[in-house]
Nucleic acid binder design. Structure first.
Length: 299
DNA sequence: AATTCGGGGTG
DNA sequence: CACCCAGAATT
């Protein structure tokens, strides 16, 4: 295990991507922003967005006081815009509770909006150089193949899997942080989900999955393809795209034009308002007509 | 443990 | 066209 770790870290020293949130002048807050943006959004799409975002709001204090509409527009099409909302809430909590500086202990990080098990561990490792168990989709896949001999990890994490991952993390803070970055990078660049490049893998000769002849995914039948066309998520996305482009409040008729199913649209609008992503303003009058309402991003 | 929540690139 | 992407929050 220690030998495989050394090989992966040595490979990382030569092949790590030159990502801006890894630069020497990085800040803990910049690392956290990258991690939140990277929650289910690929690196190639995050990188330009992160550069623009950090140029505009370099510190938690900057983001905390920004107009939410600007924040949602800057988030653009990274997806799951509630993440942008939580990131701004996170900035406000950091300012109010931690004096504007990101905390480095696990519990305080986990208490921040939008920060879960993975993100807290990643920030501890990559922003503060502390030991933590960073178990994302990349590390899960690397360990599933290398250690368990399976094509892909189970749909959900298990206690045994976390225990295994923890056993792979060195005791030393610096070594642990390097292993976390290296194992993630190996999963992202070599040990990929679709077409793994076992020919250039630094631990191919130690991989149980490769040794077994790269058997098929045993969990394939339990994975559900994400439906998209006609879903609430697509409808919500249409509405958010419209409101991001709009200069002022958008009349109900214009919103209705982006989605054919009026009942579904009404349900999604209610949900967007409840989520704090959209503000509905009813027309003046004692008996407000729903069709006379306007919609906009929150200020 | 299962659902919900965007959007786009790729084999 | 199915699948995947540095997950989190809610139920």
């Amino acid at each position: 295990m220690a030998g495989a770790r050394q090989d992966v870290v040595a490979w990382f020293d030569d092949h790590a991507r030159d990502l801006p949130w890894r630069a020497a002048d990085r800040t803990p807050w910049g690392v956290l922003v990258s991690e939140v943006m990277l929650q289910q959004t690929p690196v190639v799409r995050v990188e330009p967005a992160w550069r623009a975002w950090m140029g505009r709001w370099p510190t938690p204090a900057d983001l905390a006081t920004a107009p939410t509409a600007d924040v949602l527009r800057a988030w653009d099409r990274l997806g799951y815009p509630r993440r942008a909302l939580r990131l701004q809430e996170c900035a406000r909590v950091v300012v109010e509770r931690h004096g504007g500086d990101l905390p480095d202990d696990e519990a305080a990080l986990l208490a921040l909006p939008g920060v879960g098990t993975y993100t807290a561990a990643a920030v501890r490792a990559f922003a503060f150089g502390r030991r933590s168990v960073v178990l994302d989709t990349n590390v899960r896949r690397v360990l599933a193949r290398l250690s368990a001999g399976e094509a892909l990890p189970a749909p959900s994490q298990t206690v045994a899997e976390r225990r295994l991952a923890a056993a792979w993390v060195p005791d030393d803070d610096t070594a642990a942080a390097r292993w976390s970055g290296a194992s993630m990078e190996l999963g992202a660049l070599v040990c990929t989900a679709r077409a793994p490049r076992c020919d250039v893998c630094p631990v191919a000769d130690r991989c149980r999955w490769l040794a077994a002849g790269r058997p098929a995914d045993v969990y394939a039948h339990r994975r559900r393809a994400q439906a998209w066309t006609g879903t609430d998520r697509q409808a919500r996305g249409r509405v958010m795209a419209l409101l991001r482009e709009a200069l002022g409040p958008v009349p109900h008729d214009a919103v209705a034009a982006v989605w054919p199913d009026s009942a579904q649209l009404a349900r999604c609008l209610d949900a967007l308002v409840a989520d704090g992503l959209v503000v509905r303003e009813d027309a003046a009058g004692a008996d407000p007509d729903p069709d006379a309402a306007t919609y906009r991003l929150p200020h």
